[in-house]
């Protein structure tokens, strides 16, 4: 999802302590920053929350691409507010990760030099205005699927960040669907643009949930620790079941000929995405990987003088205050 393929770490601690810890988790007690926790739990969470935070931050880029070209002033203001929310989500999550003993700068550096990942979805381009609709509808829709259960995750600061985020996500998905409705009911060319956006974003959106359960090797420990609440396939199925009728409502066609309601399982049958493409994008070879990392590195480097200047100014003011006393 926003955190795909997070490898969970094994723990080599005292079995008694581990058992007591697991008992707390099973009793749905929240684990708080100062509590004892297995090293593996701590490391896995840093990786997962960090990757989630990076996804929120890098996720601003494909949408930021259209802020100056939104078709109306109202759409522009809405998109700006949506992208600003994503920055906020990144900040909530970085703070949650920092409670585990990693610094903000370390997290940033691991994103910038590629040691930490962000969601594969943000390595695809946003080519037309309709993509703003499809991204809000599908990408934020997929994020919601994953984030709602994470509100019950075992790590207190992460769960609380998720509660804040979930409150804001529904606006994101609705503004996207609203764009899609306008386009789908517009001129034939506008409707075609909406269809084209759905065609391009459908499978990358399905990839957000991560590899199929049969190939997903790291899930069981994370599920026992309640830092992963559902399997990848469960969430993907839920997403398709919710989204396919919405596409129908729009009068658009999901780019999957095998998509069909299956009465017996009470859900849709659908085609899996091309997993070789997924792994390729994760490896850094997607259409926009280089652009995204370049943009983040540029922002970090070009604004270093602001960060340093603010610190120098704060130090100067502190010194003046002491001198005046």
């Amino acid at each position: 999802m926003y955190a795909q393929m997070v490898k969970s770490e094994a723990s080599q601690e005292d079995p008694e302590k581990l058992a007591a810890f697991q008992k707390r988790i099973d009793a749905n007690e929240k684990i708080e920053p100062k509590d004892w926790m297995p090293e593996g739990y701590r490391k896995t969470l840093i990786r997962q929350i960090g990757q989630h935070a990076h996804s929120e931050i890098v996720g601003q880029l494909p949408e930021g691409n259209w802020i100056t070209r939104a078709p109306t002033l109202e759409r522009k203001a809405i998109l700006l507010a949506k992208v600003q929310d994503e920055a906020g989500h990144g900040l909530y999550l970085y703070c949650a990760a920092e409670t585990l003993g990693v610094s903000r700068d370390e997290l940033t550096e691991m994103l910038l030099d590629g040691r930490m990942k962000y969601s594969s979805i943000f390595n695809y381009p946003t080519l037309t205005w309709a993509d703003m609709g499809a991204v809000g509808w599908l990408v934020d829709g997929a994020a919601i699927m994953n984030q709602v259960p994470l509100q019950r995750t075992s790590y207190g600061p992460y769960a609380r960040a998720m509660v804040r985020i979930c409150k804001e996500e529904s606006f994101h998905q609705r503004q996207g669907f609203d764009i899609m409705m306008k386009m789908a009911n517009g001129t034939p060319a506008q409707k075609q643009m909406a269809q084209d956006a759905l065609n391009r974003i459908w499978f990358p959106a399905l990839m957000m949930f991560g590899p199929s359960d049969k190939d997903s090797v790291h899930s069981s420990q994370s599920m026992a620790w309640k830092i992963k609440m559902n399997t990848n396939d469960e969430l993907r199925q839920k997403f398709v079941d919710q989204t396919a009728p919405q596409a129908e409502y729009l009068g658009l066609t999901v780019p999957d000929e095998t998509l069909a309601w299956n009465d017996e399982k009470g859900g849709y049958d659908f085609a899996e995405p091309d997993w070789s493409e997924f792994h390729d994008v994760i490896q850094g070879n997607g259409p926009c990987n280089a652009d995204r990392l370049e943009a983040r590195n540029r922002a970090w480097n070009d604004n270093a003088w602001v960060r340093e200047g603010m610190m120098a100014h704060a130090a100067k003011k502190r010194a003046q205050k002491v001198a005046a006393q």
Binding site: L91, Y92, D105, R307, M310, M311, H313, A314, K317
Partner: peptide, 30 residues
């Protein structure tokens, strides 16, 4: 690490009559 903006805890009064409540943290120079 000395150049990192320090961490601040944030407390907000949501409505008249309620006490301030911890909502999260952030970094700032001052």
């Amino acid at each position: 690490p000395r150049n990192e903006w320090p961490l601040w805890e944030v407390f907000i009064r949501g409505q008249h009559g309620l006490s301030h409540r911890h909502v999260g943290s952030l970094h700032a120079a001052d």
